[in-house]
Design a binder for these strands. Structure first.
Lengths: 248, 248
DNA sequence: TGTAAACTTGCAGGTTTTTGCAGTAATTTC
DNA sequence: GAAATTACTGCAAAAACCTGCAAGTTTACA
């Protein structure tokens, strides 16, 4: 692995998670912590990240106040607009949480008349001023950092309904491991969501392509549509084109 | 957790509440109080907060953007502080929605360890950064203007649990007609909430005293505690003092 | 192609930072 | 003014860091 590759990987991780630990990176990239430290120092000197004892933080995190800016907002808006194409009047839609999904529901046309079930309170609230959409919030224990409802309540509730289409964001997707996530509770809920839906749409910014998290949500085969911010013909998506889902 | 992360968390908390206690922060961030004290000293030295005995205060306590436009915010804050007195460690609490309730959960001490069930997504989200409170959102159809979950799902869910105490805001309360509200769906949910709780606390700003809405939620007799922003001895509350609930 | 210069990387060692704890001092509260 | 809380000091262990160095790679150029 070239130094440059490491650097882009580190920057990606920092932007994605707002922080990285030297120890984690050393394992991920299979180099010594000394090397990582040197990398972090260089990236700090060029102002791309902020190095701190134990790792590094994103530049924006350093300023606590403007933290409400969504990372890669433009990309997510592009994804949202593609996703909306899949929604037709009268559908019963199921959604997860996360900024990509919120962006999607923000873009929903005002004349669309559908029913949306969601496990995400922020998504539900965003839809509160949409005149024609019936919103059902699926209740359960609130997962604090991802702000979605989880737990057995949610899973058993989902087992009793069938949805036309399910939209999920994801933290990791790769050819080998499919869709992956890092939180057990959320994985369980996502599995139940997928099971309860006729069609599965995964929304994912390009940066998260080919990244792997600890736990598997589903195989690539279970996906019906994959939406990214890239052109479907982009070379990065080459291998994904050979899967049997629709690429947008 | 990196030191820098702790620092930004502390600054955020200070700006949000204008004060923090070392003991709370130690629990929240899961480090010793010594570490917190050192953090506070460093942040004080760099002028970001003002350290005082027991915790820290915000340096400039008027922040322009914190002028949230809740109607009668001061009154509601007063109510909130009285309400909190009724909550003890380990309780299972049920809450409705509305700005008064939100104000209450904002004021909940950081070292309080309870379970809160709520029908209000905004209340749930407000509690998301409270480390010790388990939050369960009761799901259902989202009522667009009041932003709470309603419908038969909620009612039947409530029939299966018993809560220690239930906090409700209200749109109308009067000697003749008791607690009243204007929306049928919400009235039905509130009735179910009252039925599911051992104690009922009604929170109401003075302005709404003696006002009547279209539909009855409950009789005054069913109330265990009434909290207003007035002094309990205030002459406006004279008639209410003769009821058999506690006045705060 | 061959060789020197420049760069990269891991390691050994010694240094600094961070953190919790114990003991003691200061402050608050009733 | 006694009890309780909070603060400070010094210490020790762990973690992270830095420096110099040697071995390996890449680059430049004759």
């Amino acid at each position: 692995m070239l130094k440059k590759e490491r650097h882009t990987h580190i920057i990606k991780q920092v932007n994605l998670h707002n922080k990285v630990l030297s120890s984690d990176l050393a394992i991920e990239l299979n180099v010594s912590e000394d090397t990582i430290r040197r990398d972090l120092n260089e990236l700090d000197e060029t102002g791309q990240i902020v190095k701190v004892h134990g790792g590094a933080l994103s530049r924006s995190y350093h300023y606590p106040f403007q933290h409400n800016t969504i990372y890669a907002a433009d990309a997510k808006k592009g994804i949202a607009l593609k996703a909306i194409e899949l929604i037709k009047d009268g559908m019963v839609v199921l959604t997860g949480g996360g900024t990509t999904i919120i962006e999607m529901v923000m873009q929903l046309p005002k004349n669309l008349s559908i029913t949306i079930f969601t496990i995400s309170p922020p998504v539900a609230l965003q839809l509160a001023d949409h005149p024609l959409i019936k919103v059902v919030l699926i209740g359960g224990e609130l997962s604090k950092d991802s702000q979605v409802c989880t737990g057995t309540q949610v899973v058993s509730y989902l087992s009793e309904i069938k949805f036309d289409i399910c939209f999920l964001g994801t933290n990791g997707i790769s050819l080998m491991d499919g869709v992956t996530d890092s939180d057990l509770d959320i994985v369980q809920v996502k599995k139940a969501m997928i099971k309860a839906s006729k069609r599965l749409v995964i929304m994912c910014i390009a940066e998260k392509l080919n990244s792997v998290q600890r736990m598997r949500v589903c195989e690539l085969q279970q996906i019906n549509s994959l939406i990214t911010d890239l052109d479907p013909a982009d070379h990065i998506l080459q291998a994904y084109r050979r899967q049997n889902f629709q690429l947008y």
